[in-house]
Design a protein around this nucleic acid. Structure first.
Length: 261
DNA sequence: ATGTCTCCTAAGAGGAGA
């Protein structure tokens, strides 16, 4: 069973690459971020035509997250309860016993920006939300764009990026507090190539020059992580014409979802 | 190195966000 995440930077622009990727990988659940469209404008028909269900938290122009799935999800929840935020960044649903959250964490812009303060406040609320989710759903997968490179090995030039947004100590501490809840970064459960990244800037030919960061992650609760058999980044869509700046990340878990009755 | 991409407003470029 494959669970995947992809920040598509506009679902309208990236519809065909996403459909191709679904066709090639057949994920049980694909978490999307940065839809950049309202729910009414989401290309739902293109996904239902290939047999997928969709739960969408849309917003005009910015943000927006979705859960595409082979089976319908139950108990959908949009946003972080108790954290009032017009920015659509979180959507959750249950697929059999597995709770899956698609998340688009704030970027922060720079460590001197007001958006950086919002990012840190947001992560405090998100940590509390995940603590509650873990108590209700022991089998939890949290997949998305975290906008944090957890360690120096997740950064092509850690010296240049030291202390910068996406890499600052405060952000890494916030990410660490998610792991302290009992979540595992599934990518690091397995041997990986050095210089494995999930995002490359559009500018300066960053992808071809290997100038990337690993900021898209699939976290899993301990009992769910124990079922994880692989995690990988698929760089191939990043090399296509007119790509998203992010590559999809996917994890394999043993045991399929319960068959439909 | 203000280097690229996407979407918005509003009627042509410019700003926001990443």
């Amino acid at each position: 069973m494959k669970i995947a995440t992809w920040n598509v930077n506009s679902i309208k622009v990236r519809l065909n690459p996403v459909l191709d990727w679904i066709n090639n990988h057949q994920p049980a659940v694909l978490c999307l971020q940065e839809l950049k469209c309202e729910e009414a404008n989401f290309p739902l028909g293109a996904f239902t035509a290939v047999g997928y269900h969709a739960l969408i938290a849309g917003q005009k122009a910015y943000n927006g997250v979705a859960l595409l799935s082979q089976k319908p999800g139950s108990d959908p929840l949009i946003g972080i309860p108790g954290f009032d935020d017009p920015q659509q960044r979180v959507i959750a649903a249950t697929f059999d016993e597995i709770r899956v959250i698609s998340v688009y964490c704030p970027n922060g812009e720079s460590i001197t920006s007001d958006k950086y303060n919002y990012k840190l406040r947001w992560f405090t609320a998100f940590r509390d939300y995940l603590e509650e989710a873990l108590s209700r759903y022991p089998r939890l997968i949290v997949a998305g764009d975290y906008n944090i490179a957890p360690e120096d090995r997740d950064v092509y030039d850690p010296v240049a990026w030291k202390g910068q947004v996406l890499c600052s100590d405060a952000e890494r501490a916030a990410f660490g507090r998610l792991l302290q809840l009992g979540l595992k970064d599934t990518f690091r459960l397995f041997e990986q190539a050095e210089q494995s990244y999930s995002w490359w800037h559009y500018r300066v030919n960053a992808f071809k020059r290997g100038m990337g960061l690993r900021i898209d992650h699939i976290l899993a609760s301990d009992c769910q992580a124990a079922l994880c058999t692989a995690c990988a980044i698929d760089k191939t869509p990043r090399a296509l014409e007119r790509p998203s700046d992010h590559a999809p990340v996917f994890a394999e878990f043993s045991g399929s979802l319960r068959p439909s009755s």
